[in-house]
Amino acid sequence: MAAIEISGVRKVFRNATSGDELVSLEGIDLAVASNDFLCLLGPSGCGKSTLLNMIAGFETPSAGTVAVDGQAVSSPGADRGMVFQQPTLMPWLPVWENVAFHLRLKGASRRARREAAATYIDMVGLTGFADHYPAQLSGGMSQRVGIARALLMNPRVILMDEPFGALDEQTKMEMQTELVRIWEHHRGTIVFVTHGIDEALTLGTHIAVMSARPGRIKALLPVDLPRPRDVTSPRFNDYKRHLLSLLRGEEAGSLPASLAVPA
């Protein structure tokens, strides 16, 4: 069974003052298998964040269904972890309390929270920062806390909305490597929204290429590249060329022979 199943999803936003309707997503069918790392790649305004918000339960589809683990999504919930574009940490809580916030909501004792937090703080490479406050952390460190917070819930899927978008290039690359390491170690399904081609190719097992107005899935591309991925390799660049032509809206035709996945 697929971890996430999206079928026939359409999303229409109605402008409250003018009454105009904007079709944000149209005819979205997508199945994400367990332990897949799917990147939703597309330009701004293609509805990729809207699609992610539907899986999260912040938005409801105007038509069609979104199911996680066979259950229709109706509201936000702890079976799905979310890492936001901004770190969205509680500024009044130290790192460990932020990481273990889910356990606080479940009424766990301070000791249990502290212990659980320590495991995930170590996992994201923030050992020694448990008692720091968010204001004392850099952007990259804050996002690590956000990732640890999502991992601690041990969710079926982790949803990431351009989590490295606000980071500088060096930190971004570091975080990508780290995320792949955690995903390989921890396993789990990740849906990662990005507008960066290199980022999608560095991270994903699959890339769903989206086009805008209305947002559609143009292609679902399995990425067959060895890890760690070498952004300078010829094969990486073959993929990149293919993705660029898809994004530019050229009739890319079928996948070049060099990228065909061996049967």
Binding site: G77, A78, Q86, H102, L105, R149
Partner: peptide, 15 residues
């Protein structure tokens, strides 16, 4: 209040 903080809390199972 930053709406994203509330969203993050709802996503962590907060009622």
């Amino acid at each position: 209040v930053d709406a994203n903080l509330v969203r993050a809390g709802a996503m962590m199972g907060g009622r």
